[in-house]
Amino acid sequence: MTLSFQQILSRISFSVLAALIGICFALPLIWFLFAPFNARAELGLEIPSPFTLKNFFTVFENTFAMRGLLNSFIQSIGGVVLVGFAATLAAYALSRSDIPGKKSITYLLLLFSSVVSGSAAMVPIFLIVSKLGLIDTHVAVILVFAGGLLPTAMFILRDFIDGIPKSYEESAMVAGASSMQAFRDVALPVIRPGIVVVVVWAFVNIWGSFLIPFILLRSDELMPASVAIYSFYSEAGTPIVTLLAAYALIYSFPVISLYLFVNWKFGFRFFGGIKA
């Protein structure tokens, strides 16, 4: 195969361009992996020498930051359980029953939620939560997240369930199962990949959020990791790069491992299909 001069030139320039773009994306990630193990990490990229775990030990000694990780877990798992449970039941009902106007219910909720969970609604949310006397509790954070994420979760799941033939449950009922048994034995296992997708999505959302817990919580003992990360800034507001990098790596670990676990166990299959 012979290539003309122009073809060679265009291939070279394409490769160079692609490499440049790739580097732009890769650099921060490489820094993210190297800096935590470098005792003298700066904002510049540098291969750690000597390789050290000292940054991590210092971070582990910071009780506020460690407590923050635990709080993030409590809030995320609380929110995820609530969203997963409620969205599954609601989406199943919306998909399978013949309530008139069920389509518009979903869309209306979705529309409201995109308004409500935005920062524009922070003031009313704060007022409602304080009226309920829930300010500075995990429950407040969990409820607000669940409320904000539920409509989208329901929408995704309802679509997923719509793609699953009704004949599964029907054949179970003809075989002698009650509607409840048909749901538990047949529908739920088939819906599970969809629930997993929703759960991961909700977890990542809550785990990474800053604003809502920052506003709804007061005491240091309840702050999640996203807020606690500010304990690695000096009084003057400049980051302590070494500790920040180490903490950031720990902070991202649950999300990455969750993704890997789910991918290994279920695979991210949207075989119900999102029709949108």
Partner: peptide, 20 residues
């Protein structure tokens, strides 16, 4: 009557075999 109380068996066009 609910299907389960009718003592019937049915073969569906798409077979409806439980994939799991």
């Amino acid at each position: 009557l609910h299907p389960r109380d009718r003592k019937i068996s049915m073969v569906f066009q798409d077979y409806a075999l439980y994939p799991h």
